[in-house]
Amino acid sequence: MSDTPGADAPQSDEPGLERRLKRLEAILAALEADELELEKALALFEEGVGHVRSAERILAETELRVEELLGDDGRTRPLDGDEAS
């Protein structure tokens, strides 16, 4: 977050919760279907654990970020959560 209008950082390409949880569901479905080769199963297991860790990291965020969009040109400014509470 920046105090300078227009300096808003683009969203990261890191997959968000939605994609991670969807992928986790797919991994669980594959593992529980028991039709995988051993090495593939291991790879999925490790990928799944990675998604759980990343998702937990996302959940660990405690500071709500609120910004105000100032106009059509995409400029924003931080909107203090307390300002509206």
Binding site: I27, L28, L31, L42, L44, V49, E56
Partner: peptide, 23 residues
């Protein structure tokens, strides 16, 4: 609700392991 997501995530490693165990 984040708490519900946390509950779900807590159960996932067990399920992952169960998949391997079954194999």
């Amino acid at each position: 609700d984040g708490a519900a997501v946390q509950d779900y995530l807590s159960a996932v490693p067990t399920r992952l392991a169960a998949g391997l165990t079954a194999r």
